[in-house]
Design a protein around this nucleic acid. Structure first.
Lengths: 105, 105
DNA sequence: AATACATTTGACACTTCTTGACAAGTCAAA
DNA sequence: TTTGACTTGTCAAGAAGTGTCAAATGTATT
């Protein structure tokens, strides 16, 4: 892995941020949340910092466990995927807009 | 590959459609276009039908070769990536909208 | 029908990415 | 300094992506 690729790990995940925020408000430990969705604590840590992705099922479980809106969590999860897909392309905004238009039809 | 996965190959790529359309209008052969971006004809065929993805560089070359708008081609290319990222999630639209909002800031 | 050429398809080797798991590391509080 | 929470790096296995080829299919034209 090159030095540049390192930046990948500084990427922030909107879902991850939300999860961490919510978890801390409820005074839950990473370990507890991780156990609930049956993943390693390390993976949970990475997920909150956007270094690893969760799957849909895990996100749903998490939303329930944290008494949060499943819809919001899934939206954020998709949002992260979209942002990752367009990366930092100069035309990112246009691409996303186009996708929105196409998907509506 | 399961039967269900087959559906993947029925996916249409917006960029692919545009390329095919443009190529045919100019009476160019797959082979010619493929040669220009230095890929196998088979890959070009797949790209036009959305079975394989091109990379950014290839898309740019293609736009130039087909006297088309590079901006439009890249937008379509990103659009395809976005759509692929959200797959067919019921909350796809919301996820994309959220991404658009976040990216603007 | 037979030919010629364009396109599609499936298979393949190869590379790169992803995943889950583990161990060792940092850090702060007691 | 010990404890507990979190982070980091690494690994192996599997999945997914890439480019290429040969064979199959389609499509005019003669």
């Amino acid at each position: 892995m090159t030095l540049l690729d390192k930046s990948k790990y500084r990427n922030v995940s909107y879902l991850g941020q939300k999860i961490r925020e919510t978890r801390e408000k409820q005074n839950l430990l990473l370990r507890q949340v991780a156990a609930h969705i049956e993943v390693d604590t390390a993976l949970m840590s990475k997920a909150e910092r956007g270094e690893r992705n969760l799957n849909r099922e895990q996100v749903v479980k998490l939303a329930k466990f944290l008494n949060s809106s499943e819809e919001e969590y899934i939206s954020l999860w998709l949002c992260d995927k979209v942002i990752e897909a367009v990366d930092n392309d100069p035309l990112a905004t246009q691409g996303i807009k186009k996708a929105l238009t196409k998907i509506k039809n």
